[in-house]
Design a protein around this nucleic acid. Structure first.
Lengths: 160, 160
DNA sequence: CCATGTACGACCATTTCAGTCTTGCTTCCG
DNA sequence: CGGAAGCAAGACTGAAATGGTCGTACATGG
């Protein structure tokens, strides 16, 4: 439970892949855009190509990727990898995230009076949002290791 | 997406309700245990009674509630409301939470080599776990308002 | 013009969720 | 004792979300 979908997983992987490609392109000629076809990415991660294609289209529609059709076309990051957050990716693919079913778009609980739990949970929701918003695609490259630290531990305490 | 199930919602509501009852029981005679039947709780929140019953059974099996059969039976908190975390409730009902499909019980990614995303996400996972573990049932009572503060904001930053 | 690639909608199988039904056991109380 | 109140637990069902496929159309570079 509380897991994100495989699509979101795939999306993050693809973004990471493109970020790496953009990085190498940066060190190549000016015509190397770092664009890769959906098929390439799918093969690199053994993801069903058609599915990945749809995900990338979604991401492009959300403005996180730029697409270029035709021969030698493909996708590339629309912005720097440091400016794309995991939150944006997840929201683009899985839609707005609400930890509890109570919280709708309007912030109103359908069980008007009786659902007294939603307010505290909304805080949790916001925290997770902030957490994910703080994680950029750029943070996903590099073999991790030295990045945890601040992420675990007593991040929060509710005062009563 | 990234939402918890209705069952977990219901479970939290029920726990909160029992916490409140335990509180009033505390101020009553020694024989007032604060135990309430599943039906009572279900009616208070307009939850399908049978469904709530199953949830409460799960919670009892997990050791968060104590049950007492027979006339005037019902459920009561097994511990103080300040010692039961939202995380325990959610895990008891929805099972262990793993934010990404990659992370299995064994911590191994089924896509051995190619899934390079899982390590950073595991940190996120841990953060959310900690976040939920820090929220106690006792924090859910009281008409909220003055409790947010620390929960929103720059909780985390990944160093690179 | 054709190979390569994106765009997009329809479709399908499987799983998960939410909820119901049924049956059985336990305890209290008259 | 016996019945009512209450928990325990498994089978079952309908609906929705997920994961994935297919087919077709459009764009573009050589």
């Amino acid at each position: 439970m509380l897991r994100l979908t495989k699509k979101a997983d795939y999306g993050l992987m693809a973004l990471k892949y493109l970020a790496e490609q953009a990085f190498v392109a940066e060190h190549a000629g000016p015509n190397a855009t770092g664009a890769r076809s959906a098929k390439d990415i799918a093969e690199a991660y053994h993801i069903p190509p058609q599915l990945l294609a749809k995900i990338l289209q979604t991401l492009a529609r959300a403005g996180l990727l730029v697409s270029h059709a035709g021969t030698n076309g493909g996708y590339a990051l629309a912005r720097s990898a440091a400016n794309i957050s995991a939150f944006e990716v997840i929201r683009a693919i899985d839609g707005p995230l609400f930890i509890t079913s109570c919280i709708t778009i309007h912030g109103t609980c359908d069980l008007a009076g009786h659902c007294t739990i939603k307010e505290p949970l909304r805080k949790v929701n916001d925290s997770i949002t902030d957490l994910l918003a703080g994680i950029k695609i750029a943070d996903l490259i590099e073999p991790t290791d030295h990045l945890p630290a601040a992420m675990a531990g007593g991040l929060v305490s509710i005062e009563r």
